[in-house]
Amino acid sequence: MRHLKAFHIFHVAASSSSYSEAAHKLNITHGAVSKQIKVLEGYLSLPLFYKQGRNVHLTQEGELLKGYTEQAFQALDAGVNKLTQLKNQCLEVSCEPTLTMRWLMPRLSDFHLSSGADVRLSTAGGPVTLGTTGLSLAIRRDDFELFHDYKKMKLVDEWVGPVFSPEYWQQVKHDLSKVKLIHSQTRPQAWENWSSSYGNSLLLDNAHQTFAHFYFCFQAAVDGLGAAIGSYPLVVDDLKRGNLIAPFGFVLSGHNYILLSQKRALDELEQEFTHWLQESLLQCVPTNVEREGLLHF
């Protein structure tokens, strides 16, 4: 295709506020960006940008072309991802760190046995860039603003509640003022949010201890250092093993676990993983007995 390089530079510049920003994204000079835009404008015999102050803005013709270049480069990204997956029978997935370690990784062998495909995991939370990074899908808790126009699929409601080791609960159950609240720097409002959903400010004045990551909070709870707010999929295995108990039960947090994908048709492997993920997470909701807990106020 003629002027493919110029179309790509236009594609990047169209989503930037200046040629300098586009040059930084592309790791080329400001002059190189300006030159390729002029080449493309000459080829099309149409103005694509106009300058206003230090910023550049798309003309009406530029806006129209932007829509087509987005479709074209998204399709190209999808094709590259598909070729990579066909070669390796591998799916690149981003998932929140604690959900990865405490829920997803222990179950991935089931997906591999059923599909024969490998899932390569990268751990991160919050905003994510798909496609150009090689990532096909991202599993997230919907507690952040989406900066990309991705398809968002709800996987399961999030249920939360305080979790204790059985031994620690025996020590504090007759005097709840002794309960130490375990916090995470990544979810500092977890106890307050649970208290609001639970409808009781009990425990909020207790002593507390903070860890850097959510994962450490659950290990601290298992080790009897205090009580942590558990998101149900993250604690379900320890509940079943008897390492943790949830005497206050579980309440809806108002958040969901979601799956992010690009706005295109999922390929066969992505569809298979998505279906498996939905089915697996839908089995990870508390029963009515677990929701009620052991205590009643």
Rank of each mutant, 00 (worst) to 15 (best):
P47T: 07
Y50G: 01
S94A: 10
A78K: 05
T100M: 09
G31A: 07
G53I: 04
A78S: 02
N81C: 00
S15Y: 09
A23E: 07
K87L: 04
K87Q: 12
Q85M: 08
G62I: 04
A32W: 10
A22P: 02
L40P: 06
L58C: 09
N55I: 01
S16T: 11
T59K: 04
S15W: 06
Q60R: 14
L99P: 02
A75M: 12
Q52I: 10
E96V: 02
P47F: 09
T59W: 13
Q89H: 15
A72T: 05
L83A: 06
A32P: 02
A78Y: 05
S15C: 08
N88V: 00
I28V: 15
S17R: 15
G31M: 13
L44W: 14
K25D: 02
E96Y: 00
T98S: 05
Y19L: 13
T69K: 08
A78P: 00
E63L: 14
G67F: 09
E63K: 15
V33Q: 10
Y68S: 08
P97I: 02
Y43C: 06
N88H: 11
N88G: 04
N88K: 06
I28T: 07
T29M: 09
N55Q: 14
Q52V: 12
L99M: 09
L26A: 09
N55L: 12
E92W: 00
T29F: 14
Q89S: 12
S34L: 14
K51W: 09
C90R: 03
Y68E: 10
F49R: 07
K38P: 00
V39I: 15
L48D: 05
F73W: 15
K51I: 12
P47H: 12
Y68C: 00
Q85H: 04
N88E: 05
L40N: 01
S34V: 14
S18Q: 08
K87D: 03
C95R: 01
T59M: 08
S45H: 14
K38A: 10
A72D: 00
Q60E: 14
N88M: 06
L86V: 03
L64M: 11
S15I: 11
L65E: 04
T59V: 06
C95N: 05
K38C: 00
E70W: 07
K25L: 15
T69C: 06
Y19C: 06
P97D: 01
V39S: 05
E96R: 01
S15V: 07
L91K: 02
I28K: 09
A32M: 10
E21A: 11
Q36S: 15
G53A: 12
T98H: 03
N88R: 08
G79F: 01
N88L: 12
Q60P: 00
A78G: 03
T98C: 01
L40D: 05
C90G: 04
H30G: 00
T98Q: 00
L86I: 03
H30L: 11
G42Q: 04
E63C: 11
H30R: 13
E21C: 04
T59D: 06
